[in-house]
């Protein structure tokens, strides 16, 4: 069957069998290897993706269920970064490049993250970043800075879980290729109400992501650090 999925901001066409899961499609057809193959029963959260703004397990979702919908994986974070309108980034500086073109809408306020505020120069240089990245997303950088990554198998799922938590808390806005971004005034209003998530909320958000290395303290620290920086 033919599917049309907006994957990481880009509309993609796939032709797959009806029983293929979204996990298989993303790994085998779309090359999104951040989506990990774990338990295949929705228990571990390694295969987490954001589907239409909500975090879901792609192993218990048919690829056909994602037809005509938007899927975001960690590979899409550079796209998120380019569209990110979190005016709370420390050290506002205009972006050098234009953000991803939107279908329509108001002029977009472009604010990119200050590298110095998110990047530990000892840990990373710009050349170390994967292709497509100008800088790491604040959540990714916080995971690096706090040493929250061990084997890294659960990390993409955790980052996406936290991304949806931050979006819910008003700290960031998840971009959409089909929907207009909020206007600057609405974003400003929402940001004034934004508050960092409590430890309980962070742990609730991460409850579906099992860490095989049993590291459950550092990711919480990472989330707190990222939230603080986004609120600055």
């Amino acid at each position: 069957m033919k599917l049309s999925i907006t994957l990481n901001g880009e509309e993609r066409q796939f032709e797959v069998a009806a029983n293929i899961t979204l996990l298989s499609l993303l790994r085998n057809e779309a090359g999104c290897f951040s989506v990990k193959h774990g338990c295949e029963s929705g228990e571990c959260g390694a295969c987490a993706v954001i589907l239409d703004g909500r975090i879901v397990n792609s192993c218990i979702l048919l690829a056909a269920q994602a037809d005509e919908r938007e899927v975001l994986t960690v590979e899409g974070l550079p796209w998120v970064m380019r569209n990110l309108r979190a005016a709370s980034f420390q050290g506002k500086e205009p972006a050098e490049e234009n953000p991803v073109a939107r279908p329509s809408g108001d002029p977009v306020e472009v604010i990119s993250a200050s590298r110095s505020s998110f990047q530990n120069p000892d840990a990373f240089s710009r050349e170390d970043l994967p292709s497509g990245y100008e800088t790491l997303h604040p959540i990714q950088q916080a995971f690096v800075d706090t040493h929250a990554i061990q084997c890294g198998y659960c990390t993409p799922g955790m980052i996406l879980s936290i991304l949806t938590l931050f979006a819910e808390k008003g700290l960031i806005e998840l971009p959409s290729a089909k929907r207009r971004m909020r206007t600057a005034s609405i974003r400003k209003k929402l940001k004034s109400k934004a508050r960092p998530p409590s430890e309980q909320e962070i742990r609730d958000s991460l409850a579906g992501n099992l860490c095989r290395c049993t590291g459950y303290v550092k990711p919480v620290q990472a989330v707190r650090q990222a939230a603080e920086k986004l609120l600055l």
């Binding site: 929705g42 397990n57 958000s205 409850a207």
Partner: peptide
């Protein structure tokens, strides 16, 4: 019913 938000979303 499930501690996982992913499961609750589905």
């Amino acid at each position: 019913s499930s501690v996982s938000r992913m499961i609750r979303n589905q």
